[in-house]
Design a protein around this nucleic acid. Structure first.
Length: 852
RNA sequence: GGCCGUGUGGUGGAAUGGUAGACACGAGGGAUUCAAAAUCCCUUGCUUUAACGGGCGUGCCGGUUCGAGUCCGGCCACGGCUACCA
């Protein structure tokens, strides 16, 4: 009898799949199509358990859909541009391109042994010129349709590295790499006009039925629609050109509670005043330097600077309000100016208290409430309140009604107009970096910024660059920069900025439908394969990547690259949890934690001891895998030790897929034992004759129940539940005294039900038992409804809601007969003690409850 | 601060309003073995009882219901996202 040897059988069956080319996706009207996609990885060089879990989930879906008669597209690629490649080049002197392609080769080599059902013929990396050249074509088409424009924008500039930094690369106001004080610089940059689609992207969220509610909510909040009033205060004796201050408010109903006007330090009026007032300029400078981290904002005091100017209240021109420059007002939201209503805004309250400004309540909880407030009164807008300084609508009304009434009143009286604002801002795509998709623009002295001619695409990144000098190497590469103007032919210069890497990932799903087309997409292929039926990835992409992709699909539709049916590209989204692992740590001599590798630790009685000296160390459970904490489990090691089927099964078995799963060595070993056991049972079954045995029918009934349970588990992403049922069915099969024929049938079905999770083992068993062809091509088993009906059922008997007994009855026994039977039970007779039951509830096939 | 989510054995976790704790880990006991490995079997929420059995039990308090882990209201704790968004 052969023993289970994953290394042999996994290589064998991967070769067989490859030989039969079973995962190649070909358009066909013979079957319904199904497109399953996992978020493609950044080629860091090593895969981790999180990847294994992500791709296994996608693979289970893909293999299940193949078995249920679908034409499946399951591609894989690489999100290959980005800063780590440049950082590596700077650190070790290599080239980003070489580094990236080497990493891709390494990661692919690690992924192949997992036995994923991927159509590798569609593989691409976003740093392939064939891909980013098409992205440049998209850029040119978007530009022509007005979906891209240029404007000045403030960036974080690192003066030592001579580069722009993302917000998260600025730590305490200093560059994360150089440590230099970061400057705010205005650069002319390219923007996608995603704000054109704010309303559309928001309302379409409702149609995303198979997206997690959480992700939809996060996107709604991010788009941030608000309804309010925009109006202006007349400025008294303002500097030349400044006679009004425009403000935006979502609470125009509190206009009579105004006590000051606040403007951002970046507001044009503030900038004007800075020119003549050094103290004021110093204050604004101070505000701009203020940290942007959450903790700093939390701590930061409300600070203001009295400009000495005043404005007139729109309802009463004799009522003047002071104008402050305040550190808490943002220039890029609304108009960069507010009116302060301390009674109904906690920030304004803090500010007014500090600077001795009046606090005027405009509404109160009820007519008798004390108008002297000790803190801002901010009820829900849906709550009814009593207006003591209202000017529109009923005296008692909800905030919502009052806002509507106030907007109507103001519009009727020529004080501003109602406006809808969105928090979502246009997407700046310029990056002053080498390792990204070049922006296909040429700057010509005569013609200005001109798009490159499409026949000149791709504009390839030059290879001969170095990173020993700070700054973008494209800037100092004359032969690459210098070119002819595509419009007039005169000497001109290329744009040296490259695109944000989020652009690369915003349309790769569409490119997979025709990865080698000479245009960004092939419309016939896109129409056939789109949308992605099931998208799987991490929750960390809930906002940016998914929102950008939704925008891109619309923009591609507008420019003729995607059909109307594909504007919402992902029909269903699933966000999976992480793989975690315990940390083993002790406290070092300096008081800092010291971390130990799992291999250095022995576990006994839920305690951990160092193998080296036997001393006990602390166990911190369920921590995100992190190299610095020494709690990373390398998939290579696991595959070498147990094989892919064990790894795949384990990452799905212990937790629901949307939640984190804890990797434990004991759990992985137990999985391996189980898989080995299934293999052993199969070899035993294969050796049996075909004679009937005891309980053939029972085994087959259990088999049909397993088909039903596992199928519904896989359909609903309940992989852990499906696996639990497979454990149960395996135990039933192992214990069964059924004959060879029934066992063989049950074993074949078990192999099929396991095949999405353990495809190699399933092929092995399938062949061992004489199955036809490959199990990957075998149709998914269907449960026979007749075999699911039970003859007898066990019903619990409750007395006053507490379980006291149970009876076994025929499944189709009428209700009144069940009642009779129950009332005759000793325990019931004793409980009733001669009295009649107050109530008798019989739920057929479920439960009986007697109320006494 | 805002929004969202989650609280069930020693652990990960199951339970269309209908027997709470499936399945797995861990732990304990046994069989097999010269011995071990491997394998197989049994026990395992807490508590009380010699036993049969009983009591308690899904973060806390209350409500709806014949019946609540599940539904409703109010608290507490933890986690996530977002943030001076006017």
């Amino acid at each position: 009898m052969s023993t289970y040897s994953p290394s042999e059988i996994e290589a064998k069956w991967q070769a067989a799949w490859s030989e039969a080319d079973v995962f190649k996706a070909v358009r066909s009207i013979a079957k319904p199509k199904y497109y399953v996609l996992e978020m493609f990885p950044y080629p860091s060089g090593r895969i981790h358990m999180g990847h294994v879990r992500n791709y296994t989930m996608g693979d289970v879906i893909a293999r299940y859909k193949i078995a249920t008669g679908h034409n499946v597209l399951h591609p894989m690629g690489w999100d290959a541009f980005g800063m780590p490649a440049e950082n590596a080049a700077m650190a070790s002197g290599g080239h980003p391109k070489d580094w990236t392609y080497q990493n891709i080769a390494d990661m692919k080599a690690q992924m192949q042994p997992l036995g994923l059902s991927i159509d590798w013929s569609r593989e691409f990396a976003t740093c392939d010129p064939e891909y980013y050249g098409q992205q440049q074509a998209l850029f040119i088409d978007f530009l022509a349709k007005g979906l891209i424009y240029r404007k000045k924008a403030v960036v974080n500039w690192d003066p030592i590295d001579m580069t722009v930094l993302a917000n998260e690369q600025v730590i305490d106001g200093k560059g994360w790499r150089s440590g230099a004080e970061v400057e705010r610089r205005e650069l002319v940059q390219w923007f996608f006009k995603i704000s054109d689609y704010s309303e559309e992207l928001l309302t379409a969220i409702d149609s995303l039925d198979n997206w997690p509610a959480k992700v939809k909510l996060m996107q709604s909040n991010w788009i941030g629609k608000s309804r309010g009033l925009q109006f202006s205060f007349g400025l008294v004796d303002g500097p030349a050109g400044h006679d009004r201050v425009e403000v935006y408010t979502t609470r125009p109903d509190t206009l009579m509670g105004a006590s000051f006007v606040g403007i951002s330090p970046d507001h044009p009026l503030a900038k004007e005043l800075e020119r003549t007032n050094p103290a004021l300029a110093a204050f604004c400078d101070e505000c701009r330097k203020g940290g942007t981290t959450a903790a700093e904002v939390e701590k930061a005091d409300k600070k203001g600077y009295d400009t000495g100017l005043t404005v007139r209240h729109p309802f009463d021109t004799s009522w003047e309000l002071p104008v402050y420059i305040a550190n808490f007002i943002l220039m890029d939201y609304g108009t960069g100016a507010i009116f302060g209503c301390p009674a109904h805004d906690p920030r304004d309250f803090e500010f007014a208290t500090k600077y001795g400004l009046p606090i005027i309540a405009t509404f109160l909880p009820d007519a008798d409430a004390n108008p002297e407030l000790t803190e801002a009164f901010v009820p829900l807008k849906s709550e009814k309140v009593t207006y003591v300084k209202g000017f529109a609508g009923a005296p008692d009304q909800t905030g919502e009604d009052a806002v509507d009434a106030a907007v109507d009143f103001c519009e009727a009286n020529g004080v501003g107009h109602g406006v809808t604002k969105f928090r979502l801002r246009d997407w700046g795509l310029s990056r002053q970096r080498y390792w990204g998709c070049p922006i296909p623009i040429v700057h010509c002295d005569d013609c200005g910024a001109v798009p490159e001619a499409k026949e000149n695409l791709p504009i390839e990144l030059p290879y001969d660059v170095t990173f020993d000098v700070p700054g973008n190497p494209l800037d100092r590469h004359p032969t690459w920069r210098n070119c002819a103007c595509p419009s007039c032919g005169k000497p001109a210069m290329r744009e040296t900025d490259t695109m944000d890497t989020f652009v690369d990932s915003s349309w790769y799903y569409a490119r997979f439908t025709s990865p080698h087309a000479a245009t960004p997409t092939d419309l016939d292929d896109a129409a056939y394969w789109m949308n992605v039926d099931q998208y799987i990835g991490g929750i960390e992409h809930a906002i940016l990547h998914l929102l950008y992709s939704r925008f891109f699909a619309r923009a591609m539709n507008m420019t003729g690259h995607l059909p109307d049916s594909a504007v919402e590209p992902f029909n269903a989204l699933f966000t999976q949890g992480m793989v975690t692992h315990a940390i083993y740590q002790s406290t070092g001599a300096n008081g800092r934690p010291v971390y130990y590798y799992p291999e250095a630790v022995a576990l006994r009685d839920d305690k951990a001891f160092l193998i080296s000296d036997g001393s006990e160390v602390e166990i911190v459970p369920s921590a995100k895998m992190s190299k610095s904490k020494n709690n990373v489990v390398d998939p290579d090691d696991i595959l070498a030790k147990f094989g892919a089927d064990t790894a795949r099964w384990f990452v799905l078995s212990d937790s629901p897929p949307e939640r984190d799963v804890e990797w434990t060595a004991s759990g992985a070993e137990a999985t391996f034992k189980h898989i080995s056991r299934v293999h052993r049972i199969a070899t035993e079954v294969a050796a049996m004759g075909g004679a009937p045995g005891q309980g053939d029918d029972e085994l087959l009934r259990a088999m049909h129940k397993a088909i039903e349970d596992v199928t519904s588990g896989v359909e609903s992403f309940g992989f852990n539940a499906a696996i639990a049922k497979l454990y149960g069915f395996t135990a039933t099969l192992a214990k069964s005294k059924a004959g060879g024929a029934a066992k063989r049938e049950a074993m074949c079905v078990l192999a099929q039900l396991m095949s999405p999770m353990t495809p190699h083992l399933s092929e092995e068993i399938w062949t061992m038992l004489g199955g036809q062809g490959l199990v990957v091509n075998a149709p998914w088993p269907v449960a026979d409804p007749k075999m699911l009906i039970l003859d007898t059922v066990t019903m619990p008997i409750q007395i006053n809601g507490k379980r006291r007994s149970e009876i076994a009855v025929a499944a189709d026994m009428p209700k009144d007969e069940v009642e009779k039977l129950v009332l005759g039970l000793d325990i019931v007779v004793a409980a009733l003690n001669g009295a009649a039951p107050k109530k008798l509830i019989v739920v057929p096939g479920r439960i009986v409850n007697i109320v006494i």
